[in-house]
């Protein structure tokens, strides 16, 4: 499945003459990034649940691209996975407490103004 592993990299790898009749098949990464991600999309009669396709694409993307690249591309489902986001949940709780505190202080300010105006 890999084209380059186990062989020294040449300065330029140009498989112009090879790929057509191919003793060397195209890499799985090259094929998948094209047949799954590119090409014409026309809705057929067999519709695989979109959510499933997205999950599949995400899994493949994580294979095709590295995790930091995935984040760059906006694939960040693990952020919403409760198993992986304990730290963030802690921050949410902190944010909630801060919002309450701000509301409380604003409420107090409004009361103060009201007293001042009255």
């Amino acid at each position: 499945m890999s084209e380059t592993a186990g062989r020294p990299l040449e300065r330029v790898r140009d498989s112009t003459s090879l790929s057509r009749h191919g003793p060397e098949p195209a890499s799985l990464a090259d094929i998948l990034e094209r047949v799954l991600d590119k090409g014409i999309i026309i809705a057929g009669d067999i519709r695989v649940n979109l959510l499933d396709i997205e999950l599949l694409t995400i899994k493949l993307r994580l294979l095709v691209v590295s995790v930091d690249k995935a984040e760059e591309m906006g694939i960040d489902w693990w952020r919403h996975d409760p198993m992986l986001t304990v730290g963030e949940r802690g921050m949410e709780e902190e944010n909630r407490q801060l919002r309450e505190r701000v509301a409380e202080l604003e409420g107090r300010g409004a009361e103060g103004e009201a007293r001042h105006d009255g």
């Binding site: 499945m1 380059t4 090259d30 294979l63 095709v64 690249k69 591309m73």
Partner: peptide, 10 residues
């Protein structure tokens, strides 16, 4: 997107 070496072998 850049490919992952685990899949492409680069």
């Amino acid at each position: 997107p850049a490919q992952d070496p685990r899949l492409s072998g680069h």
